[in-house]
Amino acid sequence: MDQPIDINRKEVRMPTNKTGLARVLRSDAKGLLIGAALLVALFTVASILVDGFASANNIRSILLLAAFLGLASLGQTMVATIGGLDLSIPFVIGASNILLAYLFGTSVPAPLALLIIAVMGAAIGFLNGVLSYKIQGQALILTLGVGFAVVGGAQIFTTLGSQYSGTVFSQVPAWFSNIASISGTTFGLQFPPVIAIWMLVAFTLIYWINRTKSGRAIYAIGGNRTAAARLRISEFRTWVSTYTISGLTAAITGCLLLGFSGGGFVGVGDPYLFTTVAAVVVGGTSLLGGSGGYGATIIGVLVLQVLTSFLVGMGLNYAAQQTVFGLLILPMVALYARSPHIRYQI
């Protein structure tokens, strides 16, 4: 019985191994490869066309903005992996931004203030998850509604007794500003700590997703919910925890953005509404669930930030950038997230 097996295995292994590139292009790594190629191409073109594009200063600022977008897109990636979307992210960012500024203006100690905001973000995410579990197809709309309510509530809270609507002024602690501002230093080195924080978070997350039981459960749910249920992987728990993570990271991003700008502003999250989705999609995570990952999103984030910097260098304004992002999403979705023709669904 043992004899024929080895022969068979060799026979089968040979043809599948023959072209490495073709295999990569068929696999999930396709997204990473295309993304990375796009990134290199963009960077090269931009360096040629825009003066000072490859300077240390510009790269530092690209990385700083990428760190914010990267943290904001973390939750979006997780949620997209199980086939959902979270549009409350920009609103949670805005709300936590002004609420933190508000708390800094009170006698609450700064670390406690940060903790309060983080817990609030996680709670909103938890709520998103619980409320949308039974209507997963409409999670996008539901989270949009929750986001609206959250941002409205936060503004009402911070505006009561203040005459500046939407903007909160307070003194941001210097150590906190250092973390996220462009002039920040990390152990004396000339780059803001938030970049290091992002890298650390990214590394931990990727390790967790790839190597642990609970991390793999996300992919199992994204791939086949019924099969996952048969293996006692709880869809509810996975769904709710990804949304909770999304709420938490959005709140943290909102806090860090306060350190970056120095003043609370509710609109600070607005650019992240669709940009997080764009980063996820451009990286190559399929919005249908089950494929892609945070590594891909990091590439997507870098592509978008390099592109933004490039477009700014070329003199294009914010509006034009939005259009370009929108135009970039379509071919990327077409590449990764096409549904099969109806004749294959019968």
Partner: peptide, 16 residues
């Protein structure tokens, strides 16, 4: 592609 994603991209494009 899913209608909601197509219209999401549409939102971004037209907004700009």
């Amino acid at each position: 592609i899913s209608p909601i994603i197509a219209s999401l991209a549409g939102f971004m494009i037209l907004q700009g």
